[in-house]
Amino acid sequence: MPQSNNNKKKNIAIGAGVAVAAALLGVASYTATKPADSAGSPGTTRKDAAAGAEPSAEQRAGAYPELEKLARRDAKDPLAQGRADAPVVMIEYADFKCGFCGKFARDTEPGLVKKYVDKGVLRIEWRNFPIFGADSERAARGAWAAGKQGRFWQFHQAAYAEGAKEKGFGEDRLKELAKEAGVKDVGRFVSDAESDAAEAAVKKDQEEAYGLGATSTPSFLVNGRPISGAQPDEVFRQAIEAAAGQTGGKGAGQAGGQGASE
Rank of each mutant, 00 (worst) to 15 (best):
G15R: 07
G120D: 03
E234N: 13
A230H: 04
K69L: 10
N6G: 00
G99A: 01
T108K: 03
E171W: 01
L174H: 04
G256L: 10
T33D: 02
V89I: 09
A239P: 14
A71H: 03
M90K: 02
V27I: 14
R123H: 02
A252M: 13
G187D: 15
E58C: 00
A32G: 02
D107S: 12
E58T: 05
N7P: 00
A178V: 09
K34W: 01
E208N: 08
A53P: 06
K69H: 09
V121F: 07
F189K: 13
S228Y: 03
Y210V: 11
A86N: 04
A252C: 03
A13M: 13
N5V: 14
K97M: 14
S4E: 15
E194N: 11
K175Y: 01
E234W: 09
Q149H: 09
A146S: 11
A181R: 07
K114V: 08
V20Y: 02
V18Y: 04
F104A: 01
A49L: 15
R151D: 00
G248Q: 12
A21S: 14
E262H: 12
A39W: 00
Q231T: 03
G163A: 11
G224Q: 04
L79V: 01
G256Y: 06
Q157D: 15
D37R: 04
E234I: 13
P87T: 04
A23M: 07
K203P: 00
E66D: 12
R60C: 10
T44A: 14
G257D: 07
S216E: 11
C98P: 03
T31H: 08
D48T: 08
P78S: 08
